[in-house]
């Protein structure tokens, strides 16, 4: 199992800083704590051992976020893997935007329509986006797409409209196996921080140095990037692509 030390240590780093910050707030100056309320840094820990490939997350996201036909903000890839000398086995791999701390999708945007929120989410302002799709090209995870309906870039928002109301992201709330876990990486007491501490974790495409905020438990390195293998059979109907034209 390949652990992305850099990313992992990054998270640990944040956890430590978070702990120091809250200690400082408690110990030194209560006033400082009031002035600077704790700002969460949202992250997700996906425990692949718990994913049953039910796609509840995929559908919940579609329903919650009105994701148009032929696009996904998240989905779960299902693989049959056969290791040398082993038995065939199943891997269900949930994919979504990593809300990277060094997101390659942001600097390329010509009009600053996509940016990172204070709490870490990478979002798109659809009133500003010119639909040039440069960010779509730049994301190393296929996490972005052009929304046919709005004609602007679209992607997972970590459901910030829900998390800012104190709720969980739709995909996390409905995760049947309990594979998707969401919380504040800057809070050492959070479930996600605990999971990061207690498990070996890795990220997708560590070589891209994007510093993702989505971590995986149980991710085999052979699946962490472009997967060398046979693609899912796609019946002709699924690949009947819709052009982006407005009449489509």
């Amino acid at each position: 199992m390949d652990t992305n030390r850099r990313g992992f240590l990054g998270a640990m780093g944040r956890v430590t800083i978070g702990a120091v910050a809250s200690m400082a707030g408690a110990g030194q100056s209560a006033q400082a704590a009031i002035d600077k309320p704790h700002i969460p840094h949202w992250g997700m820990v996906v425990d692949l051992r718990k994913c049953i490939g039910c796609q509840a997350c995929t559908v919940a996201c579609i329903m919650e976020n009105d994701v148009p036909e032929d696009s996904f903000r998240t989905h779960v890839s299902v693989y049959e893997v056969l290791k040398e000398g082993g038995d065939p086995a199943m891997v269900m791999l949930p994919r979504l935007c990593n809300h990277c701390d060094d997101p390659p999708c942001v600097p390329v945007c010509p009009v600053e329509a996509t940016f990172k929120l204070e709490t870490g989410e990478v979002v798109v302002d659809n009133t500003k986006c010119v639909g040039c799709a440069y960010c779509v090209q730049a994301c190393p995870y296929d996490a972005r797409f052009i929304n046919h309906e709005t004609q602007t870039a679209d992607k997972c928002t970590f459901c910030f409209h829900r998390t800012s109301a104190g709720l969980l992201p739709a995909c996390v709330e409905t995760c049947v196996g309990g594979a998707r876990n969401f919380g504040d990486l800057d809070d050492p007491e959070s479930e996600v921080s605990r999971m990061l501490r207690e498990n070996e974790v890795s990220v997708l495409r560590p070589e891209m140095h994007t510093n993702p905020n989505v971590y995986y438990i149980g991710l085999d390195a052979v699946l962490d990037g472009r997967v060398a293998g046979e693609a899912a059979y796609r019946p002709p109907l699924t690949v009947e692509t819709q052009p982006h034209g407005e009449d489509a």
């Binding site: 299902v78 693989y79 049959e80 893997v81 056969l82 040398e84 994919r95 046979e230 693609a231 899912a232």
Partner: peptide, 10 residues
């Protein structure tokens, strides 16, 4: 190692 995607997005 042989990998066969059974469900994937396009």
């Amino acid at each position: 190692m042989q990998i066969h995607e059974l469900v994937g997005a396009v």
